Every structure is written in structure tokens, then in C-alpha cells.
Simulated scan of single mutants.
Amino acid sequence: MRVGKNETLAGVRLIKLRDFLRFHEESFPAEAIGEQFKVNGGRKQEIEEALVRAGYVIRHENDKTRYLVAPLGRQLCNARFISRISREKAEALLQTFLVRVVSINERDELTHKVTGVRVFGSYLTDKADLGDIDLAVGIKARRESHVKESVERANQSIRAIRSFLDRITFGRSEVKKLLKGGSPYLSIHEFDEVDELGIPYKVLFPSNGAN
């Protein structure tokens, strides 16, 4: 999850809410909100209700005076806060990304290739600026020997790779890294994620794909 530096919830910057949830990790008493943000009464309740509506916290089942940090709240805890980008910059990043897709598919030494790209999320809205670009990417092994090849490429890498899982999946991870091109604004997701969530998307690759 990437969130704009100036985004707020109930008038509180999300970066402050993130730090609050990080500190409490799993659960916290309702009064902790008032203590943290130095509010009380209706203002405290406004922040509580906003956190619940946003899906960041849920009421504790057995203790209504406490909240649990929800899965979305844990995502917020790991969120990176970056400046938003203009629609024009997003378009330029996307075009450069698609050029990399074609380049990757032409590199037979890579263990995997890109089979499809779908864009979804805020990019499909009419917003003038965006937090990031959500891309559902299909990645497929080129050959049955991809596991062996992945290990070999991991052995040749200048990075220290100790985990066995990281070694056998190195080839796929390498392609994902190449796709991002070091940009913090490109968020790569599994290809079927949009189907599982039932959300709208636009097919970018292959160019003749259909929704």
C-alpha cells in the first residue's frame, strides 16, 4: 500500500494514524485514540468511527471498549508515504512500463515472460493526480526447466540469496523487479487479483485483450 503524504482521515494525517496503529500492533483501548491525538468527546468518536468505516480497525468481539487492528490496518502499518503524481507523469510511467514488458519478453535468457497486464484502481478514475498505478500482471515460466534456471541465475547474482525459496523463485522475482524499474509508483499485483475482488480493470497487454 502506498499513500499520499498529505492524505487524511477524519482530519488526521494517515501517516500519524499509521504510526498509532504500528505502536499498538494488534489491539488497543478506545481511550488510546483520545490520548494519542489529544481529543475527547465527539471528536474522539469521529476518529474512531472513521477508522472503522475505512476498515482499519474493528470492535473487539468480547470487549467493546477495545479495537482490533484489521487486515487493512496492518497494510496501512506497512504503507509507504510518497508524493502524489500528476496524470501526465502516470501516463509516461505506464508507457515506459509497457516498453519494458516487450523488452522482457524478447529476452529469452530470462526464466519468465509477461502474458498479460491489467490496470485497475485510481488510474481508471478521472482524478488529476494519483498515489500509484495498480497493475495486475500475468507472469509465466518460459520452460519446464525454469526452477533449475532460477537457481543458476540466483547463483550468478551479485546479491546474497540464502533462502532456498528465494533461489528457486529467483527468475520470477527478477522479472517483477525489472518490470518495476525502480519506480515506487508502480504497484505489481497477481494477475487474477482483480477477478477475485470483482473490480473493474482495463487490459493493457496484449493490446487486443478484452475485459
Results as ranks from 00 to 15, higher is better:
V3Q: 05
T8H: 10
A10F: 04
V12S: 01
K16H: 14
D19I: 08
D19E: 11
L21G: 01
L21N: 02
L21Q: 03
R22T: 12
F23R: 14
F23H: 12
E25H: 14
E35I: 13
E35V: 12
E35H: 08
Q36E: 15
F37M: 02
G42E: 12
K44F: 11
K44G: 03
E46M: 10
E49N: 15
A54T: 03
Y56L: 15
R59W: 07
E61R: 10
T65E: 14
R66C: 03
P71L: 09
G73W: 02
R74L: 10
L76M: 07
C77F: 09
I82Q: 12
I82D: 15
R87M: 09
R87G: 05
K89V: 07
A90M: 14
E91P: 04
I104K: 08
N105M: 05
R107P: 03
D108Q: 14
E109C: 01
L110C: 08
L110D: 01
H112C: 04
V114R: 01
G116I: 07
V117Y: 02
V119I: 15
V119E: 11
V119P: 00
L124P: 03
D126H: 13
D129C: 08
D132E: 08
L135K: 01
L135W: 02
I139M: 03
K140W: 08
E149A: 13
E152T: 14
R153N: 06
I158K: 09
A160S: 04
D166E: 15
R167L: 07
T169N: 14
S173M: 13
E174V: 11
K177Q: 12
L179N: 10
L179G: 10
K180M: 11
S183Q: 04
S183D: 07
S183W: 07
I188M: 14
E190R: 08
F191A: 00
D192Q: 10
V194E: 06
E196K: 14
G198K: 07
L204V: 08
G209A: 14
